[in-house]
Design a protein around this nucleic acid. Structure first.
Lengths: 215, 215
DNA sequence: CGTGTTATTGACTTCATTCAAATTAGGTGG
DNA sequence: CCACCTAATTTGAATGAAGTCAATAACACG
């Protein structure tokens, strides 16, 4: 069955082990992990740092479909080629797994198979919510949503340490970088967030207000 | 495993049969098939007609994530609740299948299991392309893309018989209905398409020009 | 302590939306 | 078959939200 091949499998591993083994790889800021059209021979898990997957359009336009944080699996394809580009947001460590069938994967390492499917489902749901955002939300609503979603995925605490630049946020929310900046300023003026001098940190002062703005 | 339940299974079927059986259901224009928050106990296949799945936002805003045409399966969820609303675009016939595990499904009706997975993968890829469109394409590019994608999914021929209204197109492309109308007029003025007096029909006069506009 | 990159701010423009009106199509009942 | 009615679509004019261009400011880094 063709679809049996869409799932990853364990890479060759020592005799009796049922553990899935991958190879660790360190990547640096903006380093390409794979590109659109590349043969999809592997899939990837973020260990530390973060990764963006995106598509390109004429005129240098980008659309980042997702940010991948530690624990996330990315690069799963149903076809034989990657349909996105993937790059590290900053220095990052990822594990690379050889792709093969779900059957083999499931028989060798059920836990990893579950991780893969679970991760895929989460991505799918996030992407569906993201369509609503891209199609129908205003700039301020987009940024409010972005902050809330990200704060739910990152280690808890009153503040968010953005792993990505303003440009990345813009390319994810379908906005111009200036609009991202202006929206953040607007939220800060309203006392909803606070942006310390280190601009990649954002303190959530009033989560309820953000939720009201979300849409 | 929780994820085992995300897949549908055959509904109870006669003794020895390994065929998946569903119940046919006829729905009329704008009839609700399921709503956001409903328990996701079934999944659905379009036989004739077409279906929209969408999310709602404050202020009466809609985002249609997908149109489902004959052969398409929709309503698959990883959780226990539907995350979208589904309504018929016009009179339609759908088959309703009781949901259960992939294991059972695969053992009873491999062909149907493949159909389900294949359909899900297609939807996923379409949705990913759609994010690029929503986030980064201009009105005219959106409409050009829409026409090309739809013409590739509908029975071939020089013309497209739109199963949906202009409002539905607008809510799918993240545009206002007036912008949809104006973009179509613009394409017609350029001689790229032709819109007969029956406005739900669109004749593609110059597919190459559309592809150039796509982005 | 410069220096280059990243982010912010301001001024202006533009594309798409909104509001309003006109037109067309399709259905209904005489 | 026609006149009417309602809903869908198109068109026009004005507004507005976000984009672009340009300049400045603030960091982070060497």
């Amino acid at each position: 069955m063709w679809w049996m091949m869409i799932w990853p499998c364990a890479s060759p591993c020592p005799s009796s082990s049922r553990q899935t083994v991958g190879t660790a790889r360190k990547v640096t800021k903006d380093e390409e992990i794979f590109a659109e059209g590349d043969r999809a021979a592997y899939l990837y898990k973020v260990v530390s740092g973060a990764v963006r997957t995106f598509k390109l359009l004429s005129g240098g336009r980008h659309q980042i479909d997702a940010f991948h944080l530690p624990g996330d699996i990315f690069g799963i394809e149903s076809g034989s080629e990657h349909r996105f580009n993937a790059e590290a947001l900053g220095d990052a460590t990822i594990i690379v797994y050889r792709r093969c069938s779900l059957e083999i994967l499931a028989s060798r390492d059920q836990a990893f198979a579950n991780q893969v499917i679970s991760s895929m489902m989460c991505s799918l749901e996030r992407e569906q919510d993201h369509m609503l955002l891209l199609g129908r939300k205003h700039a301020l609503e987009k940024i409010a949503t972005f902050l809330l979603v990200l704060s739910g995925r990152l280690p808890k605490g009153g503040q968010i340490n953005l792993p990505m630049s303003r440009i990345d946020i813009a390319d994810h929310q379908g906005l111009a970088i200036e609009t991202v900046s202006r929206s953040l300023t607007q939220l800060e003026r309203k006392g909803i967030i606070e942006v310390p001098s280190y601009r990649r940190c954002i303190v959530l002062r009033d989560r309820a207000a953000l939720q009201r703005l979300e849409a």
